[in-house]
């Protein structure tokens, strides 16, 4: 079942010089196992093709069930040098969320419950 990553996880992007990192946190910790299979470095490189020039590495934060993608030469030189309108790459995580992933049979989104607040 093809689903948008936005149904499964949220992201946050950060910048250090010309390196961007995008943390991907599934709403449900159990979804990390299949997300790890789906959200490979190769697929992320494809989604950021032409935007990220350098290497991409993926790390796992087991305690919070999250993935972290570290992307080099990803910001057109970094905030002080980039000519990109979004020089920080604040929205790189949102580009990540536009990716599609193959969810297991019978999977359903979790987000309506977790966003219920107040």
């Amino acid at each position: 079942m093809r689903v948008s990553l936005r149904e499964v996880a949220y992201t946050r992007s950060g910048d250090k010089s010309d390196t961007s990192n995008v943390g991907v946190v599934p709403y449900r910790p159990d979804d990390l196992a299949w997300l790890e299979r789906e959200l490979t470095v190769d697929r992320v490189r494809e989604a950021f093709s032409g935007l990220v020039v350098g290497d991409i590495r993926r790390y796992v934060l087991p305690g919070i069930h999250a993935l972290n993608f570290v992307m080099e030469h990803a910001l057109g030189g970094g905030v002080s040098r980039s000519l990109n309108l979004d020089a920080h790459g604040k929205s790189w995580g949102n580009l990540m969320l536009s990716m599609e992933v193959e969810a297991p049979q019978g999977w359903s989104p979790a987000w309506p419950e977790v966003s219920a607040h107040d």
């Binding site: 943390g23 946190v25 709403y27 790390y59 934060l61 999250a66 570290v70």
Partner: peptide, 20 residues
């Protein structure tokens, strides 16, 4: 605003590289 496990996790991954 709000402080939830989600907002805390989002900040934990902010601007880190190798988490180890």
């Amino acid at each position: 605003g709000m402080v939830t496990t989600e907002t805390v996790k989002a900040q934990l991954v902010y601007e880190i590289h190798n988490p180890a």
